[in-house]
Design a protein around this nucleic acid. Structure first.
Lengths: 209, 209
DNA sequence: AAGCGATATATCGAAGCGATATGACGAACT
DNA sequence: AGTTCGTCATATCGCTTCGATATATCGCTT
């Protein structure tokens, strides 16, 4: 999951971890921002797998003040590394790390394509992420994505609720109904997305006005 | 989370792991049934903590066929233990384990009370579970629970969506709106629950008819 | 100058997941 | 008669993710 999120964001911009997290936070509205305990290990994994790489590593907040506003990544990276090595001298401890900006690699771009093309739409956490990132897809693939999800949700709605139909108390019943309503709303939302997508396609195809 | 789920179900019935999982599955409608990789370790933890205990342990499917239909837990438990010890004789390997029925202890009941009384209603996974289990609460505590959750959701709805209001693309906007709608629906649902609860209280208080 | 909040990276233990192993049993195909 | 298939049942493995915590700097307020 993080793999998709990170690659998707890095596809648009090179970013460091902290910023990555913030983006993801307001990307998937409100809550559901991932924790650092997930993010940094995930970045490590992706780097080891060669899907992302460190583009620049500079000391924290070295950017400001001096009137060199251009692309200074290279020089500052070197400077940062030097300073880091010099100051620590043996046991660096914990803090005082440089800001590390990550970028996506070709392999990463390819992997992102695979993840985006994955036919499995059953994961409720991953799907919104895929929608958020679906501008990377061709219009036809987008419609396909939405309709696959629609089918998944329809199937869920179709199956006979509580199997045992045991004496469900009021609260259980209320929860069930809430679930059903949420499902229906989601399906309607997908229908709207598909309709919108088809409109865009038609307007492209057949510019009658 | 599993702690609450397991204690809540065992409060009603003594159960073994497999059955526990099924109940939880149709308890929280459709998906969201927990996996065995979570369940059995959780049961182990709870047992070690003294919140649940093994009530009976019998060989798999020893129940059927013979016309002894009464409460046979005691004898069969002893028999099962014997058979298990006799057959294995050293390395028992993996399969062929006895069915272990768990029950809640006094400490477990107390812990369940604490969990149910927890003022934190921010966890979206846990909240439905608490509603499903809220018949263990006094009516006033139920209303309080629903209203705390309502306040939490209102607060989420109130905050200014995308902070940067950056150029959000169509898909982002659509996701945001879907979130907002889901939030509103959930708040309405909570209002209905509270209203229903107050009705029940009034009918109790003031039986005008 | 002291303290605080935001920026920033990182690790630790615990919790949960999906896959897999193991095995007994009954029912349905072959 | 034999085999496979689905259900019942417990358990572990490796991995991902979470929440808490540690460390450090910068800019702003007090």
């Amino acid at each position: 999951m993080l793999e998709l999120a990170i690659l998707g964001l890095l596809e648009e911009n090179d970013l460091h971890g902290y910023e990555l997290r913030k983006r993801l936070g307001d990307l998937l509205g409100l809550r559901l921002a991932i924790s650092f305990g997930s993010l940094y290990p995930a970045l490590g994994r992706l780097e080891k797998a060669g899907l992302v790489k460190v583009v620049s590593s500079k000391p924290v907040a070295a950017t400001p003040r001096s009137p060199m506003s251009g692309s200074l990544a290279g020089e500052l990276a070197a400077f940062g590394a030097q300073r880091l090595a010099a100051s620590g001298a043996g046991r660096v401890g914990r803090g005082a790390r440089g800001k590390k900006v990550y970028g996506i690699t070709d392999a990463g771009r390819q992997r992102l394509g695979e993840l985006l093309a994955d036919p499995d739409v059953s994961d409720d956490k991953v799907f919104p992420l895929r929608v958020a990132l679906c501008h990377n897809l061709a219009p036809a693939a987008r419609i396909d994505l939405f309709e696959r999800r629609r089918a998944e949700l329809s199937q869920r709605a179709a199956q006979p609720a509580g199997p045992g139909e045991r004496r469900v108390n009021t609260y259980l019943r209320s929860l069930l109904e809430r679930d059903r309503a949420a499902l229906a709303a989601d399906i309607a939302w997908l229908d709207r997305l598909v309709a919108h997508e088809r409109d865009a396609l038609d307007a492209d195809d057949d510019p009658t006005l």
